[in-house]
Design a protein around this nucleic acid. Structure first.
Lengths: 337, 337
DNA sequence: CGGAGCGAGTACAACGTTGTACAGTGTGCG
DNA sequence: CGCACACTGTACAACGTTGTACTCGCTCCG
């Protein structure tokens, strides 16, 4: 079917190893021989079989990226950057979706499908701290997100508590006192929801504002419709509020939608901040004040770290925790004053 | 390092072929032997080396998906469905981004990186009809989009002309006569922009409305900010209009943003329709009337068609053109009357 | 003028798996 | 009682590539 080294070698009248040497730019090939081989390669349209090369070398030149769902903008943007950075460094990316389901995440970690790759960038959503032991895997792994800490793998993530605190303080500085939250997960301590809620509470406490559970909107998956639904629930509860902190942009956008449905003006009646700085946040109406958590840095650092681990098979270094810088992107939905 | 068939065989006291037979559920293995082998597999934590298996079988169990950019919601949602469908069918997906750049698209088609996969689902954006010859590739290929027609590969896409005509007719039926377009590409005949503009013109013509180039907003990349910019240009031109057809949802959402900035009410002053039925279209304010072009069907059919081609190495059948059904999703931005 | 040394190229094994051909051991039946 | 045959398992080759060890012939220099 497709030509192999043998075909090229036969046509050029040399051994297959010589052809291999030409392809890999090894020394000790006479220029006349090289030319003859190159001509044969061109004539047959030969390209090396990467599967065979990988078997020989033990490397595949591919990495896996496992995220909950590319339909979630945050992960789509993350994947876009990871793929771009990987390409820049000469590897390809195999994308897996777990649906944020714990069982599927666990199954993925042991899946033989990963044998097609040299390592994994893993963003769990269903697994939690109790599953930390399952991250002991026989291949290079970089962990994202905030479901599991102090695991055996390098971990690249954002400063959730500090950033959420900054978002809340921004609202407080603008004079808001009754700040609702959309997207909390009941009882969660770590995880994006738990950590961001903690930042929120720290900001309240520092400002001497009492925490009021009536202002907390709970949802499971952080989807736009859940943001709208949680906001409607909160409105129907009747507890007054003058600001909303959406624990991510998607929730905040859904919440804005629900607020505007009822005639509330943003930011005049209610200011809104989000978290993630999705592309959309610039184009919503009003545009969304949000936290830029350093996603670009996170994605690139994850690739860089993984490739470094792959290149250095021994693991002398401890698992590292790498934290991105964040910044508040101030827009119309929550002006400074 | 990681255990191989040899290790398992030695531990179980059998030949490697017997272990292989156990793993692949081949007959003629005594149940006692099978149990012994399975025990050894479990003890060593053996998993098969897929690279070696692939070399042997000539298949990789992976397909490639090449799209312009996962940062574009349409392609992120497409990728999500492709990956989900592929997983359901037992293959993994390697995602490549071309940036919509013709040279990168052409380079990708010949890239040896594709050797890691059994076939390609390709959504070009930079290549055009003049490049049709480049689609003659030595591996199974399924084409998406509307940049190239009548190529040598199966082609799965949507009914752009009919759907755009339906969208325009919806506006006309609601009494609109001055319908602006956002996202046209100057001089383009095929391609999403060209075809959708054609559908628009057909609808105008059928209704006896004159085509007015002053109502056409041109943009290159279909990004949200370009939608807003084109809308502002159009507004500043001063030509009156009572409806906007965004050639995709992202453009329409950007256009809505620009309209609302100037105080125009949607749909009272201007109705807006989009094209794609992104998740966002349900949650914008107002929610966006748009065309659901059958993306889900397209993604699943692309995977199914590609896997069928991979399974049948001979190609008896002609390249096929597969067209999805569309429907108008009527929402607030352009009600029926 | 003889041996060291190097350049050019070859033969073979190995990566881990699976298909093919075959060998041994019973078992059933004529 | 002997043979056919199913059953269980083995040995070997092959997929296409690259590393290692080797051969051959030439040049250079003491």
């Amino acid at each position: 079917m497709t030509p192999t080294l043998h075909d090229v070698a036969r046509l050029a009248g040399v051994s297959i190893k010589t052809v291999s040497n030409v392809i890999n730019d090894h020394p000790n090939v006479r220029s006349t021989t090289r030319a003859r081989v190159e001509h044969a390669i061109a004539e047959l349209g030969y390209t090396p079989n990467l599967t065979a090369r990988n078997l020989r070398s033990g490397r595949t030149g591919a990495i896996a990226l496992a995220v909950p769902d590319l339909g979630l903008s945050y992960f789509a943007e993350l994947a876009a950057i990871v793929i771009e950075e990987a390409e820049r460094r000469g590897v390809v990316v195999l994308v897996e979706q777990t649906g944020g389901d714990r069982d599927r995440e666990i199954a993925l970690l042991k899946s033989p499908r990963l044998k097609l790759t040299d390592g994994l960038i893993f963003s769990p959503l269903g697994m939690g701290q109790e599953d930390v032991g399952l991250l002991e895997v026989p291949y290079p792994l970089v962990l994202l997100g905030e479901r599991i800490f102090d695991g055996p793998a390098d971990h690249v993530t954002m400063r959730n508590v500090e950033a959420a605190r900054a978002a809340t303080e921004h609202l407080i500085a603008a004079g808001r006192r009754r700040i609702a939250v959309i997207g909390a997960h009941d009882g969660e301590v770590i995880g994006s929801a738990g950590l961001r809620l903690q930042g929120y509470r720290e900001a309240l406490e520092a400002a001497g504002i009492a925490y009021d559970d009536d202002l907390i909107g709970y949802t499971t998956l952080w989807h736009r419709s859940n943001g709208a639904r949680a906001m409607r629930d909160l409105l129907s509860r009747g507890a007054p509020f003058d600001a909303v902190f959406g624990l991510n942009d998607t929730l905040a956008l859904g919440a804005m939608r629900a607020l505007q449905e009822t005639g509330l003006r943003i930011p005049a009646d209610v200011s809104v901040v989000g978290f993630d700085d999705l592309d959309e946040a610039q184009y919503s109406i009003p545009s969304l004040t949000t936290i830029d958590p350093g996603q670009d840095w996170i994605a690139r650092t994850a690739v860089e770290t993984l490739l470094a681990r792959i290149a250095a098979p021994a693991e002398p270094a401890q698992a590292r925790l790498l934290l991105a810088d964040f910044r508040l992107a101030e827009r119309e939905s929550a002006p400074a004053s």
